[in-house]
Every structure is written in structure tokens, then in C-alpha cells.
Amino acid sequence: MGFVKKQKDRRIEQNERSYQRNCDGFKLQLNDPDPAVRRWAARDIIQCPDASTALLERLEKEETVEVRQAIFTSLINIGDSVAVAGLVECLRSEDAALRNEAIEAMKQLPEEVSPVIRELLNDDDPDVRIFAVNILEALKHPDVEKWLMEVLETDSHVNVCATALDLLAEVGTEKSLTSLNYLKARFSSEPYIQFAVNVAIERITNE
């Protein structure tokens, strides 16, 4: 016993996968009973046409963490309009973990997500609007401050505004002072908003 000496023909890979490695095969394997097979299919399907559709269909019923992670990573890598639309739909899910995973995934797609951000910020459901602000938290996009200012000026729901306000306190510049004061006036009977706006203004003007 001891170290196995290196050999010219030593294989780094030990096991051969015996499944069909093509697009039709991957689609079938996404529904295989073995999670390991589903995970590899979710990884490898990325080059196939309609991959986003197949991945999103699987995501709806997938319960295993490692398969879901692979699906989300592939959707981020594909980043097409189908993938983004599917991620947006996840925001409406009752499954909190799925929503959080979708938010994390969307943060990685600034260019792809930016066209739908305004739509999300105007969604009828205030929870979806809050999730949209959560996405802005880490979205590396030049319009983040502008979008947050719009929320402060127009959104009727105090929780949505409070979420945007917390973020603006971190990323805002002097450009947002007018919007902050406007929010303070709109929610004059909300002590938290009064307090948080003052904190945000102080932070921005002191920088």
C-alpha cells in the first residue's frame, strides 16, 4: 500500500457514465428517478435548444437541493428570455426557498434582468415588488438608484417603500435626496419611514 504511482495512461475519471449524452437523452434524464442523473442532465443540457424550457419544467417539481442548484446555475449560464421569464415566475411561488434561489439567480443577470425590472417594480403584488427591490440589492446595473427613486416616489405600499429606502440608504447619492424627502412627506404618519429617511439623508450627505 502507499501512493499509487502516476502513469501515462492513468485516468483521472474513474467511472464512465452510461447514459445517452445528447439533447434528447438529457431531457429524459431530467426526469430520471436518480437525483445524480438529473443533476448531470441539468448541467449538460445547457448547449441544447429549448434547454431553458426543459429546465424550468423540471424546476417546478424538483425537490432535491443539488438538482435545483444545478438547474439554477444552468439557467443563469443560459440567461435567455425564457430563463429570465421562468425566474420571474418563481417569484410568485409559495415556496420561499424557490423564491430566494430565483432572486439569487436574477442578481447574477444584470443585463438580462434589467428590461423586466420596471415591470416587476410595478407588479400588482406588493410581495413581488419587494422581491424586485431585493434583486436590485446586488444587481450590478447603472440604473439601480434611478429605479429605487421611482419606487420611493410612486409605490403606494409602505413595506415596498421601506425596503427600497433601506437599500437606497446604502447605495444612494445626492441625486436621491428629493425622492427621499418626497417619501417622507407621503408617509408622514409612518414613524419608521420618518426615522429611516433621516438616517438615509444623513448617511448620503455625510459621504
Binding site: 501512493f3 504511482k5 502516476k6 492513468r10 483521472i12 475519471e13 474513474q14 467511472n15 448541467r43
Partner: peptide
């Protein structure tokens, strides 16, 4: 020196890491 196999790989690339298993 005889027992360690040195190989080139980009850990970020799923295609390159695919053969590294087990």
C-alpha cells in the same frame, strides 16, 4: 515527484472539470 499527477484545468469551466471525478 513520481506519485503526484499534475494537470492543467480551469476550475471555473464545467467542460474542463467534467473528467475530474470521485
Amino acid at each position: 515527484r513520481d506519485v503526484i499527477e499534475f494537470t492543467r484545468v480551469n476550475v471555473f469551466d464545467p467542460l474542463e472539470t467534467k473528467r475530474y471525478r470521485n
